[in-house]
Design a protein around this nucleic acid. Structure first.
Lengths: 157, 157
DNA sequence: AATGAAATGAGAGCGCG
DNA sequence: CGCGCTCTCATTTCATT
């Protein structure tokens, strides 16, 4: 799966699909000066190459009882590979953990957690952090405003 | 836009669409024991209610020359409302900033930044942080492993 | 090799009972 | 809410550059 070289058509198509994946290929074609079948072939290639990983619905958390977003920095005691993997698996398995990165620097993990209430978050920390003896400490940053969310990857033209 | 009460059908539909928004309504219908038109009406309602905000293509950053993910914690000097708004606008306008939350706690903002190289990140910090006199300090956490990414909102059944 | 025009087929979007 | 129709859009074919 090598990085395929994308021309300006591919880039333009990606930019559009990241905003609205339902844009008709005919409309995309008009925007990028290509026929609908040409657009279709390019999209197919981008999917096969793994550049387009999925097409997903974006859900508003507040409307499905997940109004609270909390960013969590987690610091481990031991940085042994098997310990790290265990933590990864635990975070991966927790549905409340929307995103998780393993990072360098002053923390080991950064999580984005979605819950309904602080009580739920407290319960989650008990289950996820206090239950694991290898977690030295964690720091919670409560989101007051979701200034920008999304998965859009900048595409330079 | 009040929180609409979602029944188990709506929840099941949302769970499916968050994994693959292209799933045919007929297939969704089979999965949740509903006819395709019923599924369609529910999806439409969910869109009108704002529960489904968009349908977007998920792009693999590494394959479009954005292989470096960095989490940034930003701390402001002044927490005056107009200063905060100015920072929000600046982060919002920067395409490299994929996500941005305004948070309580030891930091004021948490950003998810996507760049190609460390040199690019350095240039971005110059433009975004050092140029703004109101930014007291920032802390960069470089992602070594994207354990979990996505926007999936947990839906309890 | 990739494109565009035209034909085909699948799926979404309707009104109906 | 389900059934069946219509119509848009995705997909394939094929000739062309």
């Amino acid at each position: 799966m090598p990085a395929p070289d994308l021309d300006r058509f591919d880039r333009a198509i990606l930019a559009i699909l990241q905003r609205d994946a339902r844009t008709p290929q005919r409309v995309i074609g008009e925007a990028v000066a290509l026929s609908a079948p040409a657009v279709q072939r390019r999209i197919r290639r981008l999917e096969e190459a793994g550049v387009i990983r999925a097409n997903v619905a974006v859900v508003e958390p507040a409307l499905v009882d997940r109004g609270l977003t909390i960013i969590v920095e987690v610091e481990l005691d031991s940085e042994r590979a098997d310990r790290i993997d265990a933590a990864k698996r635990a975070f991966l398995a927790a549905p409340e953990v929307q995103q998780c990165w393993y990072v360098t620097g002053e923390a080991d993990f950064v999580l984005v957690v979605l819950v309904a209430t602080m009580a739920d978050y407290e319960a989650l920390t008990r289950r996820l952090f206090f239950a694991d003896a290898n977690i030295r400490k964690f720091r919670s940053l409560v989101a007051m405003d979701r200034v920008k969310t999304g998965l859009a990857v900048p595409i330079d033209p």
